[in-house]
Simulated assay, not measured.
Amino acid sequence: MSKQRRTFSAEDRYSIVQESLRSGPSEVSRKYSLSPSLLRRWKEKYLASGKDGLRDSYPRVDPQVRILEEENERLKRIVAKQALELEVKSELLKKTPIGPRKR
């Protein structure tokens, strides 16, 4: 049986911490299948910063925004490649003498 990563919202974390304060951490950690260290960390964050301390510390990125950012990077690479090609071609034209061809 593989472990699946679960996510808890700030409200879920708050209710679990409140329950652990009432019932005790060992009982609550068994009930929700959480490690005691995770529950302890949530409790410390709650006691230090209140309910705001239980929010995600990293911003969630919308999947559409991520897709657009990847597309933007791809287009930037294309433009950079074309600019480099134009620069190389202009340098070659400067070095090549233009005049009548000999037959």
Rank of each mutant, 00 (worst) to 15 (best):
L86N: 07
E91K: 10
D52L: 14
D62E: 13
K89L: 14
R40H: 12
D62L: 15
R60S: 12
E73R: 10
K76T: 13
L21E: 11
R6V: 11
L39D: 00
K43M: 09
P63N: 01
S23G: 03
G53C: 14
E87H: 07
R77W: 14
L38N: 07
R66F: 03
S33I: 00
L21K: 06
K45H: 14
E19Q: 05
F8Q: 02
D62M: 13
K3P: 04
G24S: 02
I98Q: 06
E85D: 13
D52T: 00
R101S: 08
Q64C: 07
K31I: 09
K95A: 15
V61N: 07
K3A: 06
R77S: 14
M1V: 13
K45S: 08
E44M: 07
V65F: 05
L75D: 11
A83D: 10
Q4L: 15
D56N: 12
I67H: 04
R30N: 12
Y58V: 15
V79D: 10
Q64P: 03
R60Y: 06
L92P: 05
I16R: 00
E11G: 09
A80R: 07
R77P: 01
R66D: 05
R55C: 06
I16Q: 02
L86E: 09
L47K: 03
L84Y: 05
L54N: 00
W42E: 00
Q82A: 14
L39A: 02
R41Y: 08
L75R: 08
Y32H: 10
E71G: 03
S15N: 09
L93K: 07
L39E: 02
S20L: 02
A48G: 07
L93H: 04
S49E: 09
A10L: 02
Y58P: 00
E69R: 05
V88L: 15
L39N: 00
D12R: 12
A10Y: 02
Q4C: 11
V79A: 12
L47I: 11
L75V: 02
Q82G: 14
Y58L: 12
S9D: 06
R74S: 06
Q18E: 05
E27F: 13
E87L: 09
S9Y: 03
R74D: 03
S20F: 00
L47R: 09
K45W: 06
R74T: 08
L47E: 12
E71P: 00
I67L: 13
L34Q: 05
K94N: 11
R40M: 12
E27Y: 10
K3S: 02
V28M: 02
D62C: 09
K31C: 06
R66Y: 04
R5M: 07
G50S: 03
K76C: 03
P25F: 05
D52E: 12
Q82P: 03
Y58K: 13
A83H: 07
R55P: 03
Y46W: 04
P25H: 04
P97R: 14
T7R: 14
Q18F: 02
K43Y: 07
K95Y: 09
R6I: 07
R22M: 10
V65A: 08
A80Y: 11
Q64F: 14
S49R: 08
R22C: 09
E87K: 08
D62N: 11
S2P: 12
E85A: 15
G99M: 04
A83Q: 01
